[in-house]
Amino acid sequence: MTAAQVNQARVAAQTRLDVLPLRLAHVRGVATAAAALRGHFDVITGDCLVAAAWLHDIGHAPSVRMTGFHPVDGALFARREGFHELVVSLVAFHSGAPAEARERGISAFSAFSEPPQRVLDALTFCDLTTGPDGSTVAAHDRLQEVLQRYEPDDPVHRAVYCSRDELLATVERVHGWI
């Protein structure tokens, strides 16, 4: 993993998500937050964190969408594009994605290795403390925003509702070491 792959991830996100300007604003904010945390890791892991931040929502892009489940679609895209396997796994597992997969009845995670907890926590922290417009927000407020955006019977709503305590604990763990 090199800085070139971080740039490749940035270009891919900006190009693919340009049709979703709010999503792109969020991704830019998450990438900025990840760049601020990269120093807590070795160079390769830090670069993977920032690249994954750029790519974590790329599965929402119409040109990338295949299964309709954005973490898997994004991870498959990252793998096809030759990103480091840590980037692929971070995109696949970010922000409680396995809980949403269970709600959707998807078992696609066997195709991906689970990333180290500390770096996954860092990406989840960045995602949950960045609002839709890219601004910094409290994780509790971000989760409330997601719950309000989706109807109670939607798998996203159910997954966030069921895993809210775990997601907030992740944010607190990261607050403990930054």
Rank of each mutant, 00 (worst) to 15 (best):
V6F: 07
Q8F: 13
A9L: 09
A9R: 08
R10M: 10
A13K: 01
A13T: 03
T15H: 14
L20M: 13
L20A: 06
L22G: 12
R23A: 14
R23H: 09
H26D: 12
R28F: 10
G29Y: 05
V30W: 02
A31I: 07
A33C: 11
A34R: 11
A34M: 12
A34Y: 12
A35W: 12
A36P: 08
R38A: 09
V43A: 11
G46Y: 01
D47R: 08
V50K: 06
V50N: 02
W54N: 08
I58Y: 06
A61R: 03
A61K: 11
R65G: 02
M66Y: 10
T67C: 13
V72E: 08
D73R: 13
D73M: 15
A75I: 06
A78N: 04
R79Y: 02
R79K: 08
E81D: 12
G82T: 08
F83N: 12
H84N: 13
L86V: 15
V87E: 00
V87C: 00
V88D: 00
A92D: 02
A92F: 00
A99H: 13
G105S: 12
I106M: 08
F112A: 00
E114Y: 15
E114I: 04
Q117I: 09
L120S: 02
A122E: 00
A122H: 00
A122F: 09
D127G: 07
D127V: 06
L128S: 01
T130R: 08
T130H: 03
P132C: 10
P132T: 05
T136H: 09
V137F: 02
A138V: 13
A139G: 05
H140T: 13
H140S: 14
E145R: 15
D153A: 15
D154N: 15
P155E: 01
R158Y: 06
R158H: 11
V160E: 04
D165K: 14
L167R: 05
L167K: 02
A169M: 08
A169Q: 11
R173P: 02
V174E: 02
G176R: 12
I178C: 13
